[in-house]
Simulated assay, not measured.
Amino acid sequence: MGERIYLSRPGADETVGVATGFSWGALLLGFIWALSKRMWFAAFAMVAVDLLLCLPDLWFDDRGIVGLILSTLFGIVCGKYGNEWHRRTLERRGYVVL
């Protein structure tokens, strides 16, 4: 289990803990994880990229292998950067690191 970074909104009694390191939720759940964190743009972008990654299956005869590999790589990227995206989203909303 990684460490946590705590952010709070000035003027409000609210503190949010954001994990550091790899995000298993972002890897396994993708856009559903982003929706649960109220990261609307990230969720939309994840859905769009997932749909685009399915397109090569229409052109190649490998029946899903290309899309599977690309989707897996995209999931790993989301897992690697997911917690950082969450922290940046909170900072844009006015939260500051404690």
Rank of each mutant, 00 (worst) to 15 (best):
L53F: 07
S8Y: 14
I69C: 10
W59A: 14
F74A: 15
T20V: 08
L27E: 04
L68G: 15
I32P: 03
W59C: 09
G79L: 05
L90N: 03
M46W: 08
D13C: 05
P56K: 03
W33A: 02
R87L: 12
A45D: 02
W59Y: 13
S71C: 13
P10K: 04
R88P: 01
F74T: 09
G94E: 04
P10Y: 02
R9Q: 14
G11R: 06
V66I: 15
L68N: 12
V66L: 14
G64I: 09
L51I: 08
V66W: 12
V47G: 04
V96R: 13
T89P: 02
L35W: 08
C54L: 10
P56W: 01
F41T: 12
A19P: 02
V47H: 04
V96Q: 11
W40I: 06
A43C: 03
I32E: 06
S8Q: 13
Y6W: 12
I69G: 07
G2D: 12
L51C: 09
E14N: 08
A12H: 10
L70P: 02
E91V: 11
R38D: 10
K37G: 04
W24V: 03
L53Q: 01
G64Y: 08
E3S: 15
K37H: 13
C78D: 09
W33M: 01
V66S: 15
A42C: 03
V77M: 14
W33H: 02
Y6C: 10
R63C: 09
A42H: 06
G25E: 06
T20N: 05
L68S: 14
C78Y: 12
I65C: 04
H86S: 10
I65H: 08
K37Y: 03
V18D: 00
T20M: 05
A26V: 04
T15E: 13
V18N: 03
S36I: 00
A34E: 06
G94M: 05
L51N: 05
G25S: 09
S8A: 12
W24I: 00
L7D: 00
R92T: 13
M1H: 12
T20R: 08
G79Q: 04
A45I: 10
I65K: 12
P10V: 05
G2E: 07
F41L: 11
M39T: 02
R9P: 07
V47W: 03
D13S: 13
G21S: 01
A34P: 08
R63S: 12
I65A: 14
E3T: 14
L27Q: 05
A42Y: 06
A43H: 07
S71L: 11
R93S: 11
F41K: 11
Y81P: 01
R92P: 04
L51F: 10
L55T: 10
I32G: 00
K37C: 04
V97R: 12
I65Q: 10
L51S: 05
S8W: 08
A45N: 00
G30R: 02
E14S: 01
G82W: 00
F44C: 10
L58C: 07
R88S: 07
L55Q: 09
G75S: 15
G21V: 00
G21Q: 00
G75R: 08
F41Q: 11
L98S: 11
D61W: 10
G82R: 01
F60Y: 15
G30Q: 07
W40Q: 07
C54W: 09
G2P: 06
A34V: 02
G64H: 08
R93I: 06
L68F: 15
R9T: 09
R4T: 15
S36T: 11
R92G: 10
